[in-house]
Each structure stands twice: as structure tokens, then as C-alpha cells.
Design a protein around this nucleic acid. Structure first.
Length: 590
RNA sequence: GGCCCCGUAGUUCAAUGGAUAGAAUAGAAGUUUCCUAAACUUUAGAUGCAGGUUCGAUUCCUGCCGGGGCUACCA
């Protein structure tokens, strides 16, 4: 049984007996290292309730807890009751997890199922650094949720329709000369991206021309010929024009194939894909339903709106006057479709940048108004932009860090450093490449994930990914050292052999191990982006490996006295720091 | 203008309303008979400003000052 549960029960009983008061929530926190003790109860909240001084309460409570179960002794510092936990408790606990191979990785499965959406790129631009942040967040959150015992469906919404796609298509038709990924050797997403850029160039030129001819700015922007072409194509597409649809399919496939290469290298995957082209019609249906239910209303020009002013928001369009779908229409359809396809899900997470905070506020509200039960459990995992030293990334101006380029660069950097250090001599070519990828991508992933998602990241491709300090490579290095130690030992675990009191860093290790499952659980349930970012369970595979090695290592600590001395002196610090880096030095819920 | 997010050591990041605000880097000074020095030890250094709430505020509230975003019949 977990420490917190034991103590919680005892404290509640004690309150009942001593003061004749039922208390519900007991606050535990780790004892600061300056004081004696392992776990601390904050007394202040009870002062008003009991009308006694904090010291008195703490003393009474302390003496009643002392010598019970795992509490050896206690001390009181102002309003803090510090409890000292017995070594036996730690050892017993350790014995219990030592045999459990899955300890800390998977919590008991529940019936909860959640769908996590991430990535969701536009099909006319290659993936960039912002998508990398998105993918890493979404994937990590999925893994955390899985570890917390939930069934997780990883998915994405592919924006495969709309005016932007038509822009690339128009541009390719006009300037492509039949270019394909095979002919050009370009990744499909890159190729299509080029034509989107081309479209924008031509469009800007045409707008300028029109302005020179005396048109007003706004008119010029609306009347550029290439835009009209694209709009025309959108209408054709929506009406199912064969040629348009076939071109659309072809170009989209190029893009998907290109994306897949990037996803694979990044190490993320999806259980399903949703295409807006397949859900926007369903969305339109629910616009109709909403209109009947008077959740929406129609304006004179025929456009349909949702009035959210009573909720403190404004009016939002949900269907254009010409009857075509907008973003909101599609998102409503997509959400409904997902629940239809997966009746067990009762919660959804959308990993989308914070510039869409408002959109999701509105979407969730509309879905609630439409009366869906699952609409109560929708969560927007919102994250900040990734800035470059040169300023904001702007895809239209070509100021972006391309995802593929970045991944390659990280791997190259790892390669160069490894070569300098000469640590990989004796590995064959494939092994080396694998190590470069692990190190390079690990550095990137950790660098991005360690930051609170809400915050902007300043990313300097050249300098910011370091290989020292609070970095993935340091953790990887620790892991490698631990493995190398373990390789050298044979131990036969036996509690009886252990005579000496636990040393502080040993005790700390066990505490951390005990804590691990609750960290996962709290990360998963709190929906707190900060927690999620900091307790990333699935950050590269290194983390898993790292934790797997800890119980083994701890056994060695306990059972091999001779070895133990060396280990504590030379490796204790490594582990401790690695744990600190992983963000689990924060013992707040034992 | 309205709404939302962010302001913590030189820098990059932490801190369920709790004890003396933690790390890492960069700076200064040291450490190699021992498991891989991509390491370790010591040292100095921070809550934008002003109020409020309370036993206690980096955290909650208000105002200001900075940075960013949203405020499209774009997605």
C-alpha cells in the first residue's frame, strides 16, 4: 500500500479521535532537506477549524502517529509536522516492486477511452519546427494517458479540402509542367509546398497590378485572377467535378507520402486519420440540426451563425452564405464522426497552437449547446509558438525551419560530436547511425518538451540544442553508465543481508520509484500542461530504459554491500541528477 | 479598443497558496589510481512595478508596464 494512503487514513483517524473532527483532505509534501523527516503535513489549514495553535495540533497529531505503521518519529517546526518513515517501509516497498517488471509503466486499465488529435498539418506546406513541437506534445500526452490506464486513440485531422488546397492545384496546373515527386526527386510535401509558394507570389503580383490599374486595395485582393480561379475550383470540387477531384487525390497522396517519412523519423504514429473532406458534410447536417434546435440562426444573406454573446464571446459564423463549409463546420462534423466511430471515447484532446484558443473555446461551447454528452470532456492542449532568433517563423516568406532539415541537422551534430570524442570506435556503420539518431533526436525532443507548452520557445538551431546539462544526452549518458555497471554485477537480492541504515540518496531513489505511478496518473488526469511537459513519460525510448534499470540498480544498492559503497559514491550523484532532470525530484504526492 | 497567454539568476527552464524560490548553462576556483570526464566539487547571482486577499503569495484578485496572440463568409 502506498505511503500516502496509509498516512492519510491514520491522520484522519487521529483527527477524529483527538479533536473529534472529520477532515477530508490531508496535504502531504516532501520534507525539505534541511529538516529531519521524509514527509510533512502542513498544519496551518486546521488552525481555524480546531482553534488551537499550530504547534499544539502538530504535537498532538505527531505523538498519536508515532510508532504506528511506518512512522518512526516526528518533529514539529512551526506549523509543519515532519514524519520520519522507517527503512523497513522503504525496503518492503522496494521488495514489492522489484518483482514487478511493469512497475511504474502501466497503471491498471480503466474503461476510459480518450482520443488525442495532433499534427494535423495543412497539405500544402511541408512540416516545420512548429509541427515538431505539436507532434512531440501530442504523442507524449498520448503515451502518458496510455500509461495512466486509459485507452488512447491517436489521430489527426487532415485539412484536405478548402480554398488553400485549390491554390496549390491551380498553381501546379499553371506552372507545373507535369512535375511529380518521382520525376523531380523531391519529397511530395516539398513539391506541393513549392507550388503553394508560387501561388502566393503570383497572387501578390496580380494584386499589385490591379492596384496600379486603379483598383482599391480590398477589391484588388478579392479580384486577382488566380484567386478567382482557385475559388472556382473549390466550387467544382464541392460539386464533385471529376478532373478536379482526381488531381486533388493525386496531389494529396504526394503530400501524405512525404509526411509519412517525417513522422517515421520523428517516431510518432497514428491509429486513424480523419479527412475534412469526409466530415464536412456531416458538419453541415449538424448545422441544420442546430438551426432546428435554435442553437444557430440564419442571417438575411443566408449565412448561419451562432450567438455566443451571452457566454461572453461574440457571434460566430458556422456556414457561409453560399452554403460552403467553414472551419467550424468541419470541426463539428469531425468531432461527431469520431465519436460515432469510437463509441467508447468520452474525452478528446486537441493539440493545436494557442493562436486557436478562441476557436476551440467556441467549438467546445457549440458542441455543448448541441447537447453531446462527451462535449463536457474536451481539452485543447494549447501550446506557444516556436520563435527563431531572427523572429517569428513565417512560412509564406520562407522563414521557417523545415522539419526534415532540422532532424537531419540534429543527427549530423550528434555525429560530429561523437566523432570528436571517439566514443563510437568499433561500431559498424548502421550501429553508429542508430546512435546518432538517438542522440540527435533525443536532444531535440527533450529540448522542446521540457518547456511548459503554454510558453513560447526561442529556438536557435545552432546553439540552443546543447549536449551538456539539462539535456537528453545527459540522461542517455547516465543510462549508459548504469547499464555498464549492471553488466558487471551478479547479485542475489535478499533483504536479510541488509544491515546498515539506508543512506539518503538510496532512500531518495526508492521514494522516487514509489512516486512514479502517481506522477503519471496526475499528469494524465490534471490536464496540466506544465506537468505533462515535465513528467514526460515517453520522451524518447531512453526514459523507459532508464526506469527499467532503476529497480535493478536499487537491488544492487541494497544487497551488495561491497559494491554498494562504490556505487553510492560514484553513481549516486549521476542518478540523482538524472532524476532531477527528469523533473521527478518534485515529491508532492507521495 | 475588446478578449486570451506569457514576464523568475547574464541565458534557458522549475516551483499542488507553504519552510531559506530550485536546476542547468555561462562566470570564478578546484577534481582523473575507482563504474565511460558528454562527469564531479565549491562559489556568486533572480520573482517587471504598485496595491489587495491571509497565518503565509512566484502562485489567487485589481491596476499599470513590457512581449506575443486572437479579434476573417482563411484554415
Amino acid at each position: 500500500m502506498q505511503l500516502q494512503k496509509i498516512l492519510s487514513k491514520n491522520v484522519i483517524d487521529a483527527f477524529d479521535k483527538l479533536f473529534n473532527v472529520r477532515v477530508e483532505n490531508i496535504e502531504f509534501q516532501p520534507t525539505k532537506k534541511e529538516f529531519e523527516g521524509d514527509i510533512t503535513i502542513v498544519i496551518f489549514p486546521f488552525v481555524k477549524l480546531l482553534k488551537q495553535t499550530p504547534k499544539d495540533i502538530a504535537e498532538k497529531l505527531g505523538s498519536s502517529l508515532e510508532k504506528k505503521d511506518c512512522v518512526v518519529k516526528y518533529n514539529v517546526v512551526s506549523g509543519f509536522l515532519n514524519l520520519v518513515i522507517s527503512d523497513d517501509y522503504y525496503l518492503d516497498f522496494f521488495e514489492s516492486i522489484k518483482s514487478n517488471e511493469k512497475y511504474g509503466f502501466i497503471l491498471p486499465t480503466t474503461n476510459d477511452a480518450v482520443m488525442v488529435e495532433y499534427s494535423s498539418p495543412n497539405t500544402n506546406k511541408p512540416l516545420h519546427l512548429g509541427h515538431i513541437r505539436n507532434n512531440l506534445l501530442g504523442y507524449s500526452v498520448s503515451e502518458i494517458l496510455k500509461a495512466s490506464g486509459k485507452k488512447v486513440y491517436k489521430t489527426q485531422i487532415i485539412n484536405d479540402r478548402g480554398i488553400h488546397i485549390c491554390k496549390s492545384m491551380v498553381s501546379w496546373l499553371a506552372y507545373g509542367n507535369g512535375e511529380t515527386p518521382e520525376l523531380s526527386g523531391l519529397k511530395g510535401d516539398k513539391l506541393v509546398g513549392n507550388y503553394y509558394v508560387k501561388y502566393d507570389q503570383v497572387y501578390q503580383e496580380q494584386v499589385q497590378d490591379l492596384i496600379k490599374q486603379g483598383k482599391a486595395d480590398d477589391d484588388a485582393k478579392q479580384q486577382a485572377p488566380i484567386l478567382l480561379e482557385a475559388k472556382d475550383m473549390l466550387l467544382k470540387w464541392e460539386s464533385g467535378d471529376k478532373e478536379v477531384v482526381s488531381l486533388w487525390k493525386k496531389m494529396n497522396q504526394w503530400v501524405y507520402d512525404g509526411f509519412d517519412v517525417t513522422y517515421k523519423r520523428l517516431g510518432v504514429d497514428f491509429d486513424s486519420y480523419y479527412y475534412e473532406s469526409q466530415t464536412y458534410l456531416l458538419g453541415k447536417e449538424f448545422i441544420k440540426t442546430g438551426l432546428e434546435k435554435e442553437v444557430f440562426y440564419k442571417k438575411d444573406d443566408g449565412s448561419i451563425w451562432c450567438d455566443l454573446t451571452s457566454e461572453g464571446l461574440d457571434e460566430k459564423i458556422v456556414l457561409r452564405a453560399d452554403g460552403t463549409a467553414v472551419y467550424m463546420t468541419q470541426d463539428i462534423g469531425t468531432a461527431v464522426q469520431r465519436v460515432k466511430d469510437h463509441p467508447d471515447i468520452n474525452s478528446m484532446v486537441y493539440t493545436v497552437g494557442n493562436e486557436q484558443d478562441y476557436h476551440f473555446k467556441v467549438l467546445f461551447l457549440i458542441l455543448k449547446k448541441l447537447g453531446f454528452s462527451w462535449a463536457e470532456n474536451l481539452f485543447h492542449l494549447s501550446y506557444g509558438m516556436v520563435d527563431l532568433p531572427t523572429g517569428k517563423m513565417k512560412s509564406r516568406e520562407g522563414v521557417v525551419v523545415d522539419a526534415d532539415d532540422l532532424l537531419e541537422e540534429m543527427s549530423e551534430t550528434a555525429k560530429n560530436i561523437s566523432k570528436q570524442l571517439g566514443k563510437l570506435d568499433g561500431y559498424d556503420k548502421n550501429q553508429k547511425q542508430e546512435v546518432y539518431e538517438t542522440i540527435g533526436l533525443g536532444a531535440l525532443k527533450y529540448f522542446i518538451l521540457k518547456v511548459d507548452p503554454k510558453k513560447r520557445i526561442l529556438f536557435d538551431p545552432k546553439e540552443s540544442v546543447d549536449f551538456q546539462g539539462n539535456t537528453a544526452s545527459f540522461i542517455q549518458y547516465s543510462y549508459a553508465r548504469i547499464q555498464s555497471i549492471i553488466r558487471g554485477i551478479n547479485f542475489k537480492p535478499s533483504k536479510e543481508k541488509y544491515q546498515q541504515p539506508l543512506e539518503d540518496n538510496e532512500k531518495e531513489l526508492i521514494k522516487q520509484l514509489e512516486l512514479f505511478p502517481s506522477i503519471i496518473q496526475n499528469s494524465a488526469t490534471s490536464h496540466n500542461p506544465g506537468l505533462i511537459a515535465n513528467y514526460l513519460y515517453d520522451l524518447v525510448r531512453i526514459f523507459n530504459s532508464f526506469y527499467q534499470s532503476l529497480p535493478i540498480l536499487k537491488s544492487a544498492l541494497i544487497d551488495k554491500k561491497n559494491f554498494r559503497v562504490d556505487l553510492c559514491r560514484s553513481v549516486g550523484y549521476t542518478i540523482k541528477n538524472a532524476l532531477g532532470i527528469l523533473g521527478i525530484g518534485v515529491v508532492d504526492r507521495m
